[in-house]
Design a protein around this nucleic acid. Sequence first.
DNA 1: GATCTTTGTCTAATAACATTAGACATTGAT
DNA 2: ATCAATGTCTAATGTTATTAGACAAAGATC
Lengths: 189, 189
Amino acid sequence: MARKRGLDHDDVLAAAFAILDRDGVDGVSLTAVAERLGVQPPSLYSHVAGLGGLLDDLAIAATADFGDTLRDSAVGVAGDDAVRAFAAAYRRWALTHPGCYELTLRRVERADKRTAGLGAVQTMDSILAHYGLETREARRVGRALRASLHGFVSLQAADALGRGDHQASFDAMLTLFLDGLQRRSIVTS
Amino acid sequence: MARKRGLDHDDVLAAAFAILDRDGVDGVSLTAVAERLGVQPPSLYSHVAGLGGLLDDLAIAATADFGDTLRDSAVGVAGDDAVRAFAAAYRRWALTHPGCYELTLRRVERADKRTAGLGAVQTMDSILAHYGLETREARRVGRALRASLHGFVSLQAADALGRGDHQASFDAMLTLFLDGLQRRSIVTS
DNA sequence: GATCTTTGTCTAATAACATTAGACATTGAT
DNA sequence: ATCAATGTCTAATGTTATTAGACAAAGATC
């Protein structure tokens, strides 16, 4: 009785995203998703490869969206302004979608994951290209920036930064990074 | 039959630590700990406040050990050398004990957690005091350093850094930080 | 030395979750 | 009108955490 018409892979994902944004990664269970869709948990297996597959799907979609956001953040700006814009976009997105951000780091063995993650890497490479670093050095600097951003955002999300003006601390971190970067940059625009 | 003599709070913690180092945080279950101790899962409730309490205990112990390690890393060195020694110790400990490190960030409402975490903060404050920054600025720089270290270690543990010489990238990150720091330092020793 | 209390284990049961198997209805094509 | 595919359902299994309450062993008290 009361058979629902037809559910979709995207419907399941949308429901899961809603829960993810509200309750975090640990709140995403097949039971919760099924309940939100007015369906019994086993029904989801027609659309999704179990909980693990669902999380994989979410991770890939989140990674793609994150990459798009980052790419958009850096159009029309260059140099330090681009770094700051990129960093601000990174932080804003991560704090707005904490569950998605956490999933972004999930290890997924599918090829789509790598593709989805490429956007962010390319954007950062383009931004750093402005500083005229040697390839190897540029890669290291990129990792340093990524580590700083991830570390800050991750600690802030975990409420491990203590009390204080986080925006100011974030700006200070970027300034430190940019000052250090300028020292080894070839182009001092 | 075959009643075990007497288990201890520390016995439970030790067993859990062994599992934690081997299988990560998600591998720590009351069932697994009980099995390792040759005991039924409910028996653990005599020594530990459920799984959550056990994880809290582990987090506090891990935080204390981490803090001690960091403190030891910086005795007898100052300035950039101290920062590098601190950073190296941070990374080494975190990568040697990935499960413990993850637990270090666990939110625990108990007072001991704050106490345990104080060691690391004080050590970093002492190291940064060398640079003669204003209090507020010093706090921001400290957060920046912490974010960089955590971010790098966390990404490396998640295998999200790609292939390459991670040691060199880590060193480059520190050099960037120290260069930036020197620019706003009062004491240029 | 006998009893009593405390302690720490056990078994049994409940509850939440993921997952599999297989029944059944609805949809769309033949 | 029949048939196959699709997507739901119910039922059952297994894993985990957790609570309740029985029971034995160890030490304390008299």
